[in-house]
């Protein structure tokens, strides 16, 4: 029995030391030097240095003067994150989407883009498609009394267009830029 016991216990402890402690510590050390912004959560700070969120984590935006984020099944909870997990055949899904479409529908703009009606996998999706932003643009422009052209320029600055993925707009970055350009009257 001891022929197996000693190597089993000592190797699990050694592997714990190597892969459970040394490995994450080395990666943390290199990461904190090479990529400090990302390693600490890609935080967005205001002029006073106060943390206003992470560029990777969606926030709830309410009211006409803001671009709204992708809907969240967990109401933008970060601990713990969550999804609706509604099946395509679940009547509750169709009900929720139809209700939400009735609220957001604008006749001049046609059907509501699906990403404004569906909740994401994480509940914290920081992005929307350019079409979903364009759908909201007239409302935000009117509320902030901005020309749509000025707003479109801001949208383009917050748009990512990777070679291997769909184009997306970071809603938090866009709203932060919007707030610098033309603060919403509180």
């Amino acid at each position: 029995m001891t022929t197996y016991l000693r190597p089993a216990t000592s190797l699990i402890l050694l592997m714990t030391l190597i892969t459970g402690a040394v490995y994450p510590l080395v990666v943390t050390g290199v990461a904190q030097v090479a990529f400090p912004e990302q390693a600490n959560g890609s935080l967005l700070r205001d002029d006073q240095g106060q943390v206003r969120g992470s560029l990777l984590i969606a926030q709830a935006f309410k009211g006409d003067a803001w671009f709204h984020s992708r809907p969240s099944a967990a109401d933008f909870a970060t601990v713990a994150s969550g999804a609706s997990n509604l099946a395509p055949s679940n009547p509750a899904l169709a009900q929720r989407i139809n209700d939400s479409a009735a609220q957001q529908y604008l006749e001049a703009q046609g059907a509501v883009p699906l990403d404004l009606l569906t909740t994401s996998g994480s509940g914290l999706d920081p992005h929307l498609s350019p079409a979903a932003i364009a759908y909201q643009l007239p409302r935000v422009a009117a509320a902030r009394q901005l020309a749509t052209e000025a707003l479109q320029a801001l949208v383009e600055q917050s748009t990512l267009q990777p070679l291997i993925g769909p184009p997306v707009v970071n809603v938090l970055a866009l709203n932060a830029a919007l707030e610098r350009l033309a603060p919403a009257s509180k």
Partner: peptide, 26 residues
């Protein structure tokens, strides 16, 4: 990490969202 995945032993971060709501970033 380069792409944005956190790697730190620091605590969860407290943030105040643009609309003034408290948020905990794990």
């Amino acid at each position: 990490v380069w792409q944005g995945v956190p790697q730190t032993f620091g605590d969860y971060v407290h943030a105040v969202t643009l609309q003034g709501v408290d948020q905990t970033l794990p």
